[in-house]
Amino acid sequence: MANNSRTGKNNYPGAILPAPYRVRPQPIGAVNDEQIHNGSKRPLTYATANMDDEHKIIHIRLRMNYGKPSLLTCLLGLAKKPGDAQFEYYARLADEGIAKYWSRTITLKGEAWDVRVRPERSAQGMPLTLANPGSRLLGNLSKRSRNPYPFFTGTLYYDENDGPDPERSYAMTAAHEVGHPLLTHAFGAIWSWGHAGTSTLLGKRYDSAPECPAQGEINLMLYYNRNTSCVIGSNGIFERTIASEDDLKTLVYIAGRPK
């Protein structure tokens, strides 16, 4: 579930994948714009959308509950606990990534709306463990970021060897991993963990996944087959990556409304 296979528009591959995995159109397409505007009857507890109808701006507060790995997790070699200063740095990078990659313009009821996502720290927020990689002997188990919440708490690893710009890679990975619980809440784990049909539930990319687009938007939540356009730090990948309009409409829909 880590965002290591870079992400584009909703050009999902049309191949039939091994059952029960089939590439499907984005499910939010079945929800009309009026419903998206008014919000779901089953909203998230940690996200709130304030709809500014006059100025066509949607302010979304996404509450996050960052924590350090447990003593047992560290003893098992699955992670190393960051120091206080490191932890705050990782939390700030995660906040920056969430705000950057989940904020964009969407079209709702025939008009352009500016959606601004702002993370907030809260004990009632989405839990996410911020960690340093653990034992190398455990391979991906101790270094690959994942977020299966609400089934288990996710873990976000900071890898100083992650390409030429580990800070921006971490921020982008944080935004990707935070997206999994959102899409799981809306459409279930098969859709979310399977990256809209581009991977298995365990995050193994399918050969039928599309190639990373050389130009235009790169979808934050999809897995792509590697090509020269997918190299981290090249071809404007940090600038072109963004949550798709449909995924952001999904967040608007499932976010609660102020009471």
Rank of each mutant, 00 (worst) to 15 (best):
W193Y: 09
M221S: 00
M172W: 05
R136D: 10
V178E: 06
S135L: 04
H195I: 07
G163A: 08
A196Q: 12
T200E: 14
P166H: 04
L130N: 04
G194A: 01
V117K: 03
R168M: 06
Y206T: 08
G197Q: 05
R104I: 03
W191G: 07
K109P: 06
L222P: 04
A196N: 09
E120F: 15
C212M: 07
Q215S: 05
M172K: 08
Y206L: 13
D159N: 14
L128I: 05
W113F: 15
F151A: 15
V178I: 15
A99H: 07
A99E: 07
S103K: 00
A112D: 13
P127Y: 13
C212R: 11
A174G: 09
R205A: 08
L222G: 12
A196H: 13
T155C: 04
Y157W: 02
E120A: 15
H195R: 08
S145M: 09
M221R: 02
R104W: 08
E120Q: 15
S145D: 01
E177L: 06
N147H: 00
G139L: 01
P164I: 11
P213L: 04
T198G: 00
G110S: 10
Y170A: 08
A189R: 08
T173Q: 10
G110P: 00
A112T: 15
D207P: 11
P213H: 05
T173R: 15
A112V: 09
K143T: 13
M172T: 03
G125N: 02
S208E: 01
A189H: 01
A112R: 13
E160H: 13
E211S: 10
P119E: 04
L182M: 10
S135K: 05
G139I: 13
L130A: 02
G163L: 03
L108A: 13
R168C: 02
V117H: 00
I98C: 02
G134Y: 02
H176D: 00
T184R: 14
H195S: 12
A99N: 10
G188K: 00
L141Y: 03
Y170N: 10
I98V: 13
I190Q: 14
F152K: 11
P150H: 12
L128C: 01
R118F: 10
E120S: 14
T173C: 15
T155A: 13
S135E: 03
Y157S: 05
G139E: 02
K204P: 06
Y101S: 11
I218D: 01
H180V: 06
